Amino acid sequence: MADYQLTATDAAVIRTADQAHIPNDDANRDWQEYQRWLAAGGVPDPMPPTINPALDTKPAKTAAQILGV
């Protein structure tokens, strides 16, 4: 796991240690720290894949259906 994770846009990154959202703002010291980390060879984790509920076409079973009652 990297120190940072990308988000859906380049407007921010996530610091993995505390899940803080770091905005893309040159005046922000956390963003400056992220830029130094990148310059030193750091590679952020990719954005987690999005879940598309439309792809789940099977309706969920009820507890009674699972237990056969």
Rank of each mutant, 00 (worst) to 15 (best):
62 T>W: 11
34 Y>A: 01
60 A>D: 14
34 Y>D: 00
58 K>Y: 13
43 V>T: 12
45 D>W: 01
26 D>S: 13
28 N>P: 06
53 P>C: 07
59 P>L: 11
33 E>M: 07
53 P>R: 12
37 W>H: 01
61 K>N: 15
62 T>S: 14
49 P>N: 09
39 A>Q: 10
5 Q>G: 00
53 P>Y: 08
49 P>W: 02
57 T>R: 13
34 Y>I: 02
7 T>N: 04
34 Y>L: 03
6 L>W: 01
15 R>G: 02
12 A>Y: 06
19 Q>S: 13
39 A>D: 07
62 T>I: 14
57 T>D: 13
24 N>D: 14
11 A>T: 11
48 P>A: 05
14 I>A: 01
58 K>E: 15
41 G>D: 12
25 D>K: 14
8 A>V: 08
4 Y>G: 00
6 L>Q: 06
12 A>S: 14
27 A>Y: 06
52 N>S: 07
61 K>A: 15
21 H>A: 14
38 L>I: 04
56 D>V: 14
29 R>A: 15
18 D>K: 03
54 A>D: 11
23 P>W: 10
31 W>N: 07
46 P>K: 03
33 E>R: 10
55 L>K: 10
55 L>D: 12
58 K>W: 15
62 T>P: 08
46 P>G: 04
15 R>H: 05
50 T>W: 05
41 G>W: 08
8 A>I: 07
44 P>C: 02
20 A>H: 12
25 D>R: 15
20 A>I: 13
53 P>L: 09
17 A>K: 03
25 D>S: 14
54 A>W: 07
49 P>A: 12
6 L>V: 02
59 P>V: 11
25 D>Y: 13
25 D>P: 09
8 A>P: 04
29 R>I: 15
51 I>N: 09
7 T>C: 07
4 Y>F: 11
40 A>N: 08
62 T>Y: 11
55 L>H: 09
22 I>R: 02
40 A>L: 05
42 G>R: 05
6 L>C: 02
40 A>P: 01
14 I>T: 02
36 R>P: 01
44 P>G: 03
16 T>A: 03
47 M>H: 02
10 D>G: 07
18 D>Y: 04
22 I>A: 05
40 A>W: 03
17 A>W: 00
27 A>Q: 08
45 D>K: 02
26 D>W: 08
7 T>I: 03
